[in-house]
Design a protein around this nucleic acid. Structure first.
Lengths: 152, 152
DNA sequence: GTTTGAAACTAGAATTGTTCTAAGTCTTGA
DNA sequence: TCAAGACTTAGAACAATTCTAGTTTCAAAC
């Protein structure tokens, strides 16, 4: 907590976005955001906490939750939910969906084909859709390869 | 717990399916299943517990979780997850997706158009998809109607 | 009919992920 | 330089779920 805000990778976008939401670009927020940019593997709050601690040893779990919440509110980060597992955080803000590996539990971004429209499903009359999210399940390339190797 | 298993609505399918998984058709399991068939509004375990209690006052929360788990394992019921809310249970086993109302929190079944194929998304090479689920968000017919009424 | 062992039930404790609270610290602007 | 508000912190509280240990039930063997 003896840290001045200073330009960092992703810092400019971060400061502008936070400011737009009336939030201050504190060292903790900057660092949590950097952690998310550095390794885009959809970490849980716990994992973000552990990674953030390496540089800011005094950071608390509550602060990590607060920072993640601030980043979500100002549109820099998305929450990703799967089953009842812990919330994961994703710094990829382009339109995309997720693939969850049944084997290793990993989450992978699946980029939407830009010319594909909404899913072919016609919603019954009256429903007003605002967004939709597709969750794919199965085996990721690594686990699929390992399985087919073991089956021989 | 002084109840003998007896034929009930949905009982035959239930008994057969449970037996196939090597599970006994106990009064609790039958009743929990009946609760799910009776009102197909995607109740949480807590809600199932409260409804089940009306007929079996001694039933415990742990048993409700056990029964729901048994029903899921033998393929009579599906778990439905949304955000980090409590798990909901769905006795509609036909292929379908879900619409979640941002306003009232309700969950609605969205039946898949049988001739529509998988979503237009091409998964990157290597991924082996087993299933996918689309979660729609927005306003349900009731809430959409209420909103447009209030905006006038 | 009893006995016996496995399956299922129960209450309550434990666990997990998250949010809340209260107190302290920092920053900004008057 | 001081006050007000924003932010951080530790730890308590909370909700949903799972685990544990003891009891009950059931079915099949005796």
């Amino acid at each position: 907590m003896k840290r001045k805000s200073s330009p960092e990778p992703g810092g400019e976008a971060l400061e502008a976005q936070l400011a737009r939401a009336g939030l201050r670009p504190t060292a903790q927020r900057q660092h949590v955001y950097r952690v998310l940019l550095r390794k885009r593997d959809h970490p849980t709050a716990e994992e973000v906490f552990l990674r953030a601690k390496q540089e800011i040893p005094d950071i608390s779990m509550a602060t990590v939750y607060n920072c993640l919440d601030a980043l979500v509110r100002c549109g820099l980060v998305k929450q990703v939910h799967h089953d009842r597992g812990a919330t994961r955080y994703c710094s990829n803000m382009t339109e995309h969906h997720h693939f969850y590996c049944d084997e290793c539990g990993g989450a992978f971004d699946i980029t939407t084909d830009p010319e594909a429209g909404h899913p072919e499903m016609t919603l019954p009359p009256g429903f007003q859709m605002r967004r939709y999210e597709i969750a794919f399940n199965g085996l990721c390339p690594q686990c699929a390869a390992r399985q087919s190797r073991n089956h021989r």
